[in-house]
Simulated assay, not measured.
Amino acid sequence: MSKPDLISWTQSRLGAFYEAREEEAFASAFNAVFSPSCEVRVNHAPSTLDAFRDSISLRKAASRGVTLSWENVICTGDNPDEPSVVAGTLIITRSMMFLIRAAPAQRLTYINFSARVEPLEPSGVQADENDDRRRITSLYHTSVDKVPPIHFVTPHPVIQEEQE
């Protein structure tokens, strides 16, 4: 089985836990991407992996759907068996359970990330037969939430022509 390149690996693994709907799937996807000793910085402040997981989990509340958009994702290396850094921008569009003007409310989260991806030693983490033993060992995560503008229908006056 060939290993996916580091950009594809990072996008699929990060995407899996951002898109997970059930808590069990979220926890499984989260644990599959991060080393237990991962160094985490959220908005340039040191954080724990547990606090980061909880903040991601809380953002999912009241959402009923997620769309991911990746931009400018780059990688420092092309060998999946060597440590590398994958960095880029992720835009998450969450559709909420409540409506605004007969359409689901939305929330946008813009994330700039830098993740150090390393292959772990066999004794590090238990893995199944499909696991390639790569994990994120360091993550810099900068995010901001935005609400997209609501587009209201603008009434236009109707001008009637004079009839002769």
Rank of each mutant, 00 (worst) to 15 (best):
Thr137Ile: 15
Val86Lys: 00
Phe98Met: 13
Gln106Ala: 11
Tyr140Thr: 14
Ala103Ile: 14
Thr93Lys: 01
Val86Ala: 03
Asp128Gln: 01
Ser84Cys: 14
Thr137Val: 15
Tyr140Arg: 00
Leu99Arg: 00
Leu90Phe: 08
Ala102His: 10
Met96Tyr: 09
Pro83Cys: 06
Val117Ile: 15
Asp78His: 10
Val86Trp: 04
Ser84Leu: 10
Asp131Lys: 00
Asn130Leu: 11
Ser95His: 06
Asp131Asn: 01
Leu108His: 08
Val144Gly: 05
His141Glu: 12
Thr142Phe: 12
Ile91Ala: 08
Val117Ser: 08
Thr109His: 05
Tyr110Ala: 10
Ala115Leu: 13
Ala127Trp: 01
Ile91Lys: 00
Asp78Ala: 04
Asn112Gln: 14
His141Trp: 15
Val147Asn: 01
Asp78Ile: 09
Ala127His: 01
Arg94Met: 15
Asp128Gly: 07
Arg94Ser: 10
Ala103Arg: 00
Gly88Ile: 09
Ser123Gln: 12
Thr89His: 06
Val86Ile: 11
Ala105Gln: 05
Ser143Cys: 11
Ala87Val: 04
Met97Asp: 08
Asp78Gly: 08
Ser123Pro: 06
Ser84Ala: 13
Ile92Asn: 04
Asn130Gln: 08
Gln106Pro: 05
Asn79Ile: 06
Glu82Pro: 05
Val85Glu: 01
Phe113Tyr: 14
Asn130Ala: 07
Val125Pro: 09
Ala105Val: 13
Pro80Asp: 04
Thr89Gln: 12
Arg116Trp: 10
Ile92Leu: 09
Ala127Gly: 07
Pro83Asp: 12
Leu108Cys: 12
Val144Ala: 04
Tyr110Asn: 05
Ala103Lys: 00
Asn79Val: 08
Asp81Gly: 13
Ala103Tyr: 03
Asn112His: 12
Ser123Glu: 15
Ser143Lys: 00
Leu139Gln: 00
Ile136Thr: 11
Arg107Ser: 14
Glu129Cys: 09
Gly88Val: 07
Asn112Lys: 00
Pro104Thr: 12
Arg116Leu: 13
Ser114Asn: 03
Pro122Ile: 14
Leu90Val: 15
Lys146Gly: 05
Ile100Arg: 02
Val117Phe: 05
Pro83Gln: 02
Ser143Asn: 10
Ser143Arg: 00
Met96Glu: 13
Ser138Lys: 02
Asp132Ala: 04
Ile91Glu: 14
Thr137Pro: 13
Ser123Ala: 11
Phe113Gly: 11
Ala87Glu: 09
Leu108Ser: 08
Asp81Arg: 01
Arg101Glu: 12
